[in-house]
Structure formats: structure tokens, C-alpha cells
Nucleic acid binder design. Structure first.
Lengths: 353, 353
DNA sequence: CTGAAAGCGCTAACAC
DNA sequence: GTGTTAGCGCTTTCAG
């Protein structure tokens, strides 16, 4: 196979342009102290020879690796891929992350890390040592794993925590879950609903709590009761099924349900069908996530979109800039929209509004 | 931010174990000529110090980069991500590719490359120069882009061509599309169907032709006509709609249709609904791809599964081995299964079988 | 403003 | 078997 050495190196460019290595290096790195004419001459040689710096060499010499690492939960991610239920978290992450990285001459690499604490440290340390990323993006539940955040802080690597507002090192980015839940609840109230149920997600995720809080706030604001209307789920289908069943078996049945995930909303739809409740006539349903499947349910689900791509894109920008500008302390919120589809309608007897 | 140097290097390990750098290197790389006891001693130090080799340094010194690059079509991939129709090609690729890479101490990186010929060369050369991948995986339509394959061959980088059987450098892997199409057709014939329509995919992809060929072969084998029963599509929804409409408006309407993609099958379902044909009573439908959405259509679609994960996994293994064992010349076929769901049934008047 | 020198961490080639 | 030497391509000192 033969060793593959760099075809054209900085030295070739330097020779071609008749300058020293340093000058070329300065031009590449957009450093000051180069006369415009020199710069042009060097750039011309670079273009002519098709020179591209070797990332490995740059990294070796103590500069950047031009690499942003996205850390996802191994088990959960693989399960999503295997089950093929349409979860496109990783895709949206790549959409926002890869493209934005590309714009800045960076690359994004996805890494799966086990949450099991005896592994996480070795795995992450290994990835850091091997890859030397310039920045790391933590997705839930890693965003609030202090082993991970501690290790990263200790290594002095800038990182973003998606879906967390916990104080501590790294920049927090959320999709403003509380606001989204409020938006969804308000919409249902506006449609005349008074009994609005909520199916919460796994309490391991902070955002589950925020969503519940948003729903509660909107209900309270409208002077409505929430007592007994919050079911507990874990984002998965089965849990949603159980919770929906419980809510819809209430003596005073809710006329609308907000589910904290598409899978749980899907389950709610199915439970409604079993109970001969038609959607949206007898029951309105709103879900969270807006994954691909919501377009294909019957009826299609009104859903809170999670602006994953935007959020990751923003995180990448902050991380890349972190070399110059320190990361902001305050959490950044990227707002999600409510995507209107057929699963919601006016409450029965609300035509007098 | 301060330069981040390797925390523990090969030198530390050497000192700790009281051996030379070279011996450590030999242990890391599983090279011969190290006494078992030395090896153990070194390994103990490695474990103790938590040493992980720097890929950049390994790469610099002319060895491997431990990187496999997966090249996808930029435009198409981004469009899939944006439209959120549930296409999980990239996910399945990562599932097969990342995990298998991981097992061998490699990483996989996804790179999007424009097909536009004036860009492709620069982009790919840049990626090669910057990343120095040990292997590249080409997905359609790149698999048959001679500019790309030529460049890779010239750089002496082992590569796999997914969905191609063209002769030339690199190892070809297909999902045995012809066989899959035959399988699907045979199944319908077995159910008593005699007029079986086919909606072909974009002719830019070789596999479109193979699928048509498989259908034709199965039909011929059963002594059935295919004349006028093949509609032309491009994998997209609209094209499927048009083709399905045409097929179902035939004086001698087919009782079953095989579509070369899920989107076209979806369109077929919709056209059938518009024409008051119920599925599977009046029309059986089989699709290709088995993306997440097929579980959510009404009825759920029987589909030919594309074993993407397996295929990419196999490609990765071959590529990693290519350093020792040359790539096989013959194409490798990974067989796909037919996933049975509700969209097919016995042909009308076929109960006498 | 520009250039020369000294590594970064690792491996290939060669000695011992 | 094991150790020594010389780079890989680049950036960071530090001189001019």
C-alpha cells in the first residue's frame, strides 16, 4: 500500500512562492504581519498547487485540530438506529453541525459514549487523547453528567451542553422547552379546551420538568386546574400508552393531551382509537419533537418542533469562537415552533367562543 | 485557552515501564519481536497511565490515520435531512460503519461532496489532504463517478463502492437488488397476481436497472407479460404519483405494484385511495427501502429491506483489512429481506389457487 | 514585517 | 529482541 505522504506541503508552497515556511503559515492562519503583496503571491501558489494543510500536522504542532466532537448516548442512539422509528436527532444534529463546521473549515465527528459510569471516563479520555477536539457538544443525558463535564473542563476543552441549564462550565443551550409547552397549551386553551392533560417524559432529563412547568404555567394563567392531569412517561411508546389510558379513563376526561414525545403522542392516538374517541373531534393531541413520523399518523400530529439543527449550529459557532471569545455564561435559548397539523381542533361545546 | 498537549505520551509510558519508545510502539501496534513479559510490563504501564496514542502523531509519522471516510452526495443528503421524510440512510450507515470502525479502533467520518464536477475534485482532494483517510466508502451516485474513483485510485486509497458493480478499482458491494426485486415479484405471483406493475427509480442509479431486471426475470419465469407495466420514476413522491396514476389507468389495470422506493410506494397508496382502490383488496403494493415511514402508512407497507448497516459494516472491514489483504475483485452482495406488512394480499379471484 | 530553529508524538529504518 | 536515529508537516518561539 505504500506510505501516503502529503502530496504538496507547506514547503512546496514556500518554494514556489519564494518565501519562507513561516510566511506561508501566516497566510494560511490569517495572521497579521504579512504584506498584502506577499499574501497574494502565497495565495496564488496555494491555489496553483492545490495545497491543503494537513490537519494532523497542524494538530501536532500544538495548534487546533479543527474538530468538533458530538457526544451522544451510546445505548439510546443505537437503539434509535436499530428500531428505525424515524427518530432523526442525529441527522438534524449533523445538518446543523456539519454544515456550520464546514463553513469554518472544521469537521464534526459523532462519538457514542456509554453512560455507565465505570466506562465513561475511560472512553471520553481516550477520545480526547486520540482526537484532541477543539470543542465538544454534549447531548442529553450527557449534558448533565458531571463526570463528563468535569473531565472536559479539566482538559480545558470548550463544550456545549444541549438541553441543560445547570450552572457550571460549558455553554448551555436549550430549545426553550417551557415556552414551547406554554405555546402548545395556550393554543389548546384558545381552542376552548379546559381539561388539558400532559404526559411527562423521563425525569432523568431536565427538559421533562421544564415542559411540565410550561404547561402548568399556561394552565394557571388561564385559571385552569392541572390536578391529576399529569401522567408520567419516559418518552417511549409503552409509557405513553399507559399514561394516556390513565388520563382518558378519568371520570372527568381531558379533551386534549400534550405528550412530551412523538412516540407517546403516537400511543395516545392509538389509545384514543381503542376507546372510540376520534381525533381531533373528541380529543386533541399535541406532541413534542416533530420527528418524521408525525406527518404519517392519522390524523397527522400537531407537534412542537425541536430546532435541533439550529441549536447545534449555534453551539458549533460558539465553540469555534471560544478560542478568541470566552463562552457566554448565560444559557442560550433557541425557540421551537408549533407545527400545526390535523390532530387538534376546537373543544366540544366551545363553538360559543 | 493554552495549548493542549498530549497529557501522557509514549515517552511517559516508556519511562514508566523502563523500556524504549520503540518497544512501546511495538506493543501498541501489536508488532512481533517483543517478549511476552516486556509486553505485559508495557501494557501495565499503558493501563496505569491511561495512555492512548495520538492519532495525529501516528498519522504524521507515516502510519495510519485510523479514519474511514464515508462520502455522501451533498445535495441529496441535505435535502433528506431538511425534508424530514424519515429517510435514514445516514443513520443506518453510521450504525453499521461507526460500530464496526469502533471495534477495530477506527473512526468513521461523514463527508458531503457535491457531484458538480468542477467542485468534486477540489473538495475530495482537500478532504484527502486534510484527513488522510485509510479508506473511503462511496455511496450512490458517487460510487460510479469516475472522477472520484480515479482520484482515490491515484492516491492509492482503498475504497468501497456501494450500489455499483462496474469494473474498476475499489471493492463493489451491492444489496443484491435484482434478487430482491425477484423475491418481491415472486411473492406477488404466489399470491395469485398476474398483472404486476413496476415503478422504476432514477436511471442515474445502476440499481434502478437491476431492480427492473429482477422483476422482469421473475415475471418471465412465471410466463407473465411485463409489456407496458413498467413506469418510470425518479425515487421521489411526485414521480411515483405520476407513474402510479398511469399504471392504474391502464385498461387492464395491474392488481399489484412494486415501487422502487418508499416515497413512490407512498404515492401509489395515495393514488389508489383517490381512485377508490383499497389496499390490499384491490391493489397490492410493495416498496423498496423499508425506511421508517413504511410502518406508519395505511396499511403499513410490505417492503424490501435494504441492509445498509450490514453492507457498510462489511465495507469497513474490507477497507481496514486492505492494508494486509488486497480488496477482492468480485462484487459482494448483501442480501435484503422482504418485510411483510399489510399492503399485500391475494389477488382477486385467486382463491382457487 | 520576515526568516531560522526547535520541537509536537509517533513510527520506519537501521543499529546493536 | 531491543534501542537509537531521523524525520513526518506544521506552528511556535525567537532573531533579524
Amino acid at each position: 500500500m505504500g506510505r501516503r505522504r502529503q502530496a504538496v506541503t507547506i514547503r512546496h508552497v514556500a518554494d514556489d512562492a519564494g518565501v519562507s515556511l513561516q510566511t506561508v503559515s501566516r497566510v494560511i492562519n490569517k495572521q497579521p504581519n504579512v504584506r498584502p503583496e506577499m499574501k497574494e503571491k502565497v495565495q496564488a501558489s496555494i491555489d496553483k498547487l492545490g495545497y491543503v494543510p494537513s490537519i494532523a500536522a497542524q494538530q501536532m504542532s500544538g495548534s487546533r485540530s479543527y474538530l468538533i466532537l458530538a457526544l451522544n448516548d451510546r445505548e439510546r442512539t443505537i437503539e434509535d438506529w436499530r428500531s428505525r422509528q424515524g427518530t432523526d436527532w442525529v441527522d438534524q444534529m449533523l445538518l446543523g453541525g456539519m454544515l456550520t463546521c464546514g463553513e469554518h473549515g472544521y469537521r464534526m465527528m459523532v462519538e457514542l459514549v456509554d453512560t455507565r459510569s465505570d466506562h465513561v471516563e475511560r472512553e471520553l479520555s481516550g477520545a480526547i487523547a486520540a482526537l484532541q477536539p477543539d470543542g465538544v457538544i454534549l447531548t442529553p443525558p450527557h449534558s448533565e453528567n458531571s463526570l463528563i463535564t468535569g473531565l472536559l473542563a479539566q482538559h480545558n476543552i470548550p463544550f456545549a451542553r444541549i438541553g441543560s441549564r445547570d450552572p457550571g462550565p460549558g455553554i448551555c443551550l436549550t430549545m426553550d422547552d417551557e415556552r414551547s409547552a406554554r405555546l402548545a397549551t395556550d393554543k389548546l386553551i384558545e381552542l376552548g379546551h379546559r381539561r388539558i392533560g400532559f404526559i411527562a417524559g423521563s425525569s432523568e432529563y431536565s427538559l421533562s420538568g421544564w415542559r411540565v412547568a410550561g404547561w402548568q404555567a399556561a394552565m394557571a394563567n388561564a385559571g385552569l386546574q392541572t390536578e391529576g392531569l399529569c401522567g408520567q412517561g419516559d418518552f417511549g411508546y409503552e409509557s405513553g400508552e399507559a399514561a394516556a389510558h390513565k388520563l382518558l379513563s378519568l371520570p372527568n376526561q381531558p379533551s386534549a393531551i400534550i405528550a412530551s414525545s412523538d412516540q407517546m403522542a403516537l400511543a395516545t392516538l392509538e389509545v384514543a382509537r381503542e376507546m372510540n374517541l376520534s381525533v381531533p373531534e373528541d380529543l386533541s393531541v399535541i406532541s413534542f419533537d416533530n420527528t418524521p413520523i408525525v406527518r404519517f399518523t392519522n390524523p397527522p400530529l400537531t407537534a412542537v418542533d425541536q430546532p435541533i439543527a439550529q441549536t447545534i449550529s449555534r453551539a458549533v459557532e460558539l465553540l469555534i469562537n471560544a478560542a478568541k471569545v470566552p463562552l457566554p455564561n448565560k444559557p442560550i435559548n433557541i425557540e421551537g415552533k408549533l407545527e400545526m397539523r390535523g390532530s387538534i381542533g376546537p373543544a366540544r361545546g366551545a363553538n360559543d367562543l
